[in-house]
Simulated assay, not measured.
Amino acid sequence: MDGVYPIIGTIILFLLAWDVFATVFIPRGLSGPFTQNSHHLIWRIWCRINCTGTPAARRRLSRLGPMLVILTVIGWALLLWLGFALIFYPHASGFHHGTRSPSDWISALYVSGYSVTTLGVGDIVPKDGNMRLLMILAAGSGFILISIAVTYLLSFYAALGRVTALAYEVHRFLGKSDGYSPVDVVITAITADCIEEMKNWLADIGTTLAQVLMAEQQYTLLNYFHEPDDMALPVALTDVLELTTICRSVLSPTAYPSMANGLITAGTERLTRGYFESLARKFGGRVEVSREAIEDRHIHFDQVRAKLEQAGVQLRDREEAWAIYNTMRQGWEIPCHTIRVLFGYPGFSGLALKSE
């Protein structure tokens, strides 16, 4: 029976090494076996408890990201400790003790603990030479894990800063805190003859968003950080989608070809929509669309069109514009609603998220 423990310990260490390697070094949007499964499980439990839509629930939901960072590092350390303890255990009866002998399990856990934490106490040491070499391996593994964890956390929080900075920039540029909306930005760009400035801003947003998407592929923990509305990326990118949708569907392609049919508005819209679609595939959920959602979409379209007409902006034919607007909104509204609701932000009326 004692021969089983080293096998289990070796398997745990192998899976831990793969988990750290996959989480830290492979930028493919997935973590290792321990990290990915534990994150999803904790997320679902935390979300069921706190996803009630109240400000207090939002605050509790926002604490999950920092908690997961701490739990990930602690989990790696505990698995490393346990793996080497299981390997040491069958040989613990032969350890040399400076004081009275504790139990074999205590000895194995103690030697494994001070080895992987590089404390090097040494009051209990194996007599067997192979076990002493294993202690060196355990100490080296602990030192490497500590170095990787520190480097990972520094890089992770730098990426988190880019995410929140992008959301904050969108929020401030659109003037949400001052009561403005995406349609107001479009009107200002046209009436003040600064269309090129808005296009340049959209191009910058697209470039920064591409970098953020790459960061979220590498640091999957970023998906669990939920900031206040003015620094929340799902909220900010919803406004970017609304802005590009208005440009591409409602504006006259003859009068404003670069805004209605240009590469920048189309590319930014695709990048932003892809952000929500990839997260919706990851976190799951089924959205039910009611007649109220379509009616609200039509009312919003009429309000946008009326505001543009009042400002003297040249527009597409109403029916053509509505057909394009409705199709584009259908393309991003459901994944956008899914992520906003799952992350504790207000969704769209008429849409209901059902957990799978």
Rank of each mutant, 00 (worst) to 15 (best):
P6M: 05
I7P: 03
I7Q: 13
I11T: 09
A17R: 01
D19S: 11
V20T: 11
V20L: 11
T23L: 04
I26M: 11
P27R: 03
F34D: 06
C47M: 08
T52N: 15
T52C: 11
G53Q: 11
P55E: 14
A57F: 01
A57T: 03
R59Q: 15
R60T: 03
S62K: 01
S62W: 02
G65C: 07
L68V: 03
V69W: 12
I70E: 04
L71Y: 09
T72K: 06
V73T: 08
L80K: 02
L82G: 02
L86A: 11
I87F: 09
P90S: 03
H91L: 02
R100F: 14
P102A: 07
I106H: 05
T118N: 13
L119H: 01
V121G: 00
V121A: 14
G122I: 10
D123A: 07
V125R: 10
L133I: 08
L133H: 04
L137Y: 00
L137F: 10
A139N: 12
G142D: 06
I144P: 00
I144F: 15
I146W: 02
A149W: 01
Y152S: 03
L154C: 02
F156A: 06
A158H: 06
L160H: 12
L160R: 15
G161R: 12
V163R: 14
L166F: 09
E169Y: 05
G175L: 05
G175N: 06
D178S: 14
S181C: 00
P182A: 04
D184T: 03
V186Q: 10
V186Y: 09
I190K: 04
E197K: 05
N200Q: 13
A203F: 08
I205D: 08
T208Q: 14
A210Y: 01
M214K: 14
M214T: 08
M214N: 12
A215M: 05
A215V: 00
Q217E: 15
E227W: 12
P234D: 10
I246K: 01
S249L: 07
V250P: 03
L251W: 10
L251Q: 08
P253A: 09
T254C: 00
S258F: 03
S258D: 15
E269T: 01
G274D: 15
Y275F: 15
S278K: 07
R281W: 09
G285A: 09
G285V: 08
R291M: 08
I299Y: 04
I299A: 12
H300G: 15
H300P: 00
D302V: 11
D302A: 14
V304F: 05
A306D: 15
L308Q: 08
Q314R: 13
L315V: 04
R318D: 13
A321F: 05
R329A: 12
Q330W: 07
R340C: 10
G347V: 11
A352Y: 11
